[in-house]
Each structure stands twice: as C-alpha cells, then as structure tokens.
Design a protein around this nucleic acid. Structure first.
Lengths: 189, 189
DNA sequence: CGCTCGTTTGAGAGGACTCAAGGTAGGTGG
DNA sequence: CCACCTACCTTGAGTCCTCTCAAACGAGCG
C-alpha cells in the first residue's frame, strides 16, 4: 500500500480524526490504538456507533457516497493511523479485486452489526438492551466463561442509548438476579 | 445473469421470503413489488429494518458472513423476485469486478442508512424521531414541496420504535404547530 | 349494509429521566 | 505515607411522558 502514497499519522488520546458533518477525504486504518465513532443529539447526549481497534478500518462508507460523515471519530487512546486518500483507495480497488472483496466482507459485517444494534435499541426495557449488548460482546470475544466487560458505565449507556443512572440501577438488579457479576465495581458477564 | 442460473419467483402479498434465524442461501433482487425486512422482539413488537422496491436487492450481507438472517423478509404486495444461489453470486463477483464495486456502493449506502437510523432511535422525544424519519424520506424523494407520506401510522411506529398511539398523538401535536399537514388522515411533510 | 383495516381518543400506571449529592478507586506530588 | 485530584460509580426523590388497555370512529369494499 505504501507505493500508493499511504502515510501514517500519530494521534494523542481524545483527538478528533474527523467530525460529524465533515467531508470524507481519506481512508483510515488503525495500526495501534483505538477509535470510537459517535454522534451527538441536540441535547448533547452521545451515541457510540462503534469502537474500532488495531487492524480495523473505519469511516469508509461515506467515501463511496460523497456524503458528509454521519458521526465523528475520536481516539480513545494514543493511536497510529494509516491514511490513504480517497482517489488512491479507489485506484487500489480497481487494481486489486481482492481488496474490493475484502471490503465487501467488512461492509457486510458492518451492516449486520448495525442491524443488531437497531434491534437492541427497539427493545422496551433497559435490561434487555444491556443483555443484547453484553451478548454481542461475548460472541465477539468467543469465550464461554465469564467475560470482564472493558467498558465504563457511561460507555455502556452511550452504546445502549440509556442514561448512566439507568445502566447502574439495571446492572444492580441484574446482579441480584445473578444475570451478571459485579466484583469491585468491575462487570462480568 | 440468466446464464448464471438465476430464476424468478412470484410471491403474493404477505409471503415470507426468508425468516429471522434462517440460513442464507440465495441472493434476491426485486423485479416488481416491495419487500419489508423486519424483526420481532419478545413482546411481539415489530421493527422495520428497511423497505425495498423494484431494482433493489436485499438480504445480501448474511450471505457473506455465514450467519443466520437477523431479520425476516416479507412481501408488502404481489412481488416478482430474481433469485440466485450464493455460489453463483460469488462466481459472478469473481468474474465481473464491476459487480463487486456495485455491491460495495450498495453496502456503503446500507451502512449509512442504518447509522442514521441508529441516531434516530437514540433521540429522546417521539417528535424528533418522527422528524428524522420524515427528513430521510424527503431527502430520498428529492423533492422540495410537501411530500405525501406513503406509510400507515403503524408502519411509522414500526420504523421509529414507537407505539401507534404515540405516533398519532405526536403527529396531531405536530399538525397544530404546523410541522406537518394532515388532510383527510393523509400525512404530508 | 356489514366487514375489515386503519385511525383516534381517554384514563391510568409504570418507569426512565432529571437533578442533586455523595461515595470509591487509582494516580500524582509533596 | 498521606493529602489531594480526577474520573467513575452510586443513591435518592420527584416529574414527566410513553406505554398499556379499552373503546369507538372513519373509510374503503364486497
């Protein structure tokens, strides 16, 4: 890819990579670090569309549509990105059919994830939303035993569209009914 | 495409094309008619992931992922489908790079739409959800004057995750504040 | 006319959200 | 070693508003 003029970019934790409403001009892939894509509603409440880590790319769909970004991308930790201009990406796609097929697979996964997320948000009770969220994490982790959930209560709230307090209250109920474990404030599922 | 063994299938209104949890085996494209993709939560409430019409394909992502369908597909009217087996679809993608690029564009659009839908569902008030829903319809219709909304109150509810009664009450408020027109039970935005 | 499907209105309860305050843990610096 | 700071977690009280359930109205069609 380097021959196509890719460059790397180092970012500190909490920096913006692009902003909601902005013009898409680059393809990004994470070399090290983590990135969240999120959007704000008018009340200033944040919704997390997804969190991406090393080896993953993000924010590609708007490149294909000539439309502004629907969400912002912000680093969650110090991060190194691979950066490639839109035109170069399209050249690569033309030259290497394998890349297009790879992207197709990534997009299929993205559609699938978002369809699941939509289903989660339409559940009426907070408990079910949280369970669906935790189930997804667990299926991604591919383990059977209890999984330590690496998210803060606030992040769970931002994923599920709930308020922090509601997440906390629901989790304590779930702890009492043994649906989750909470040990030293850490959440296990 | 016919040479790759595509076939057509006629369906009456209300028939299932595939069901939530089912194994994906075919690629479908609508020749005439309309299809809704929807999923049910435990309470039996339906959520509409999307509605597709002539010339559009649907339900492709699970084909690429070897995962069960997250939603069911049901015809909204008498419909004729083009049907192509998974293997044949992959052959075509290998033989014609243009098809892959076309699919990429469709998937990008799909991701974008679902990201917007997610944002809609996280809005706290029914009115904002409905406005975002109506905005999207209007931008798709590409017209500036008032648009007659071709959905029932129940369908709007199933798109926005609200209840019919809430949709109706919110729409009457919006009518009073002149945000929508309601003439003879028909909704205009 | 009588059926069906969609729309509308009302009353009541439950529960998520809001706001406000306090608690806990881990890290930093003196 | 302790005091402090910051970020995150927790709890309480009260309001609002969506959902639920029930009933009735309206339109289109055989």
């Amino acid at each position: 890819m380097i021959t196509y003029g890719a460059s790397t970019k180092k970012l500190k934790k909490g920096e913006y990579i692009f902003e909601e409403g902005g013009e898409p001009r680059f393809f990004f892939k994470i070399l090290t670090g983590a990135v969240k894509m999120c959007c704000m509603n008018e009340e200033g409440k944040e919704f997390i569309q997804g969190i991406y880590r090393a080896e993953e790319s993000f924010g590609e769909p708007p490149l294909f549509l000539n439309r502004p970004y629907p969400s912002s991308a912000i680093t969650l930790e110090d991060t190194v990105l691979l950066k490639l201009s839109k035109d170069k990406l399209f050249s690569i796609i033309n030259d290497y059919p394998g890349v297009a097929k790879n992207l197709l697979h990534i997009f299929a996964q993205r559609v699938y994830d978002k369809a699941t997320a939509l289903q989660m948000l339409t559940c009426p009770t907070p408990e079910r939303k949280i369970i669906i969220f935790l189930e997804k994490l667990k299926s991604q982790a591919k383990i059977n035993h209890k999984l330590m959930i690496p998210y803060t209560r606030q992040q769970i709230a931002d994923f599920t569209g709930l308020r922090v307090e509601t997440v906390i209250r629901t989790l304590s109920k779930m702890k009492n009914s043994c649906k989750v474990d909470i040990i030293n404030h850490k959440l296990y599922y």
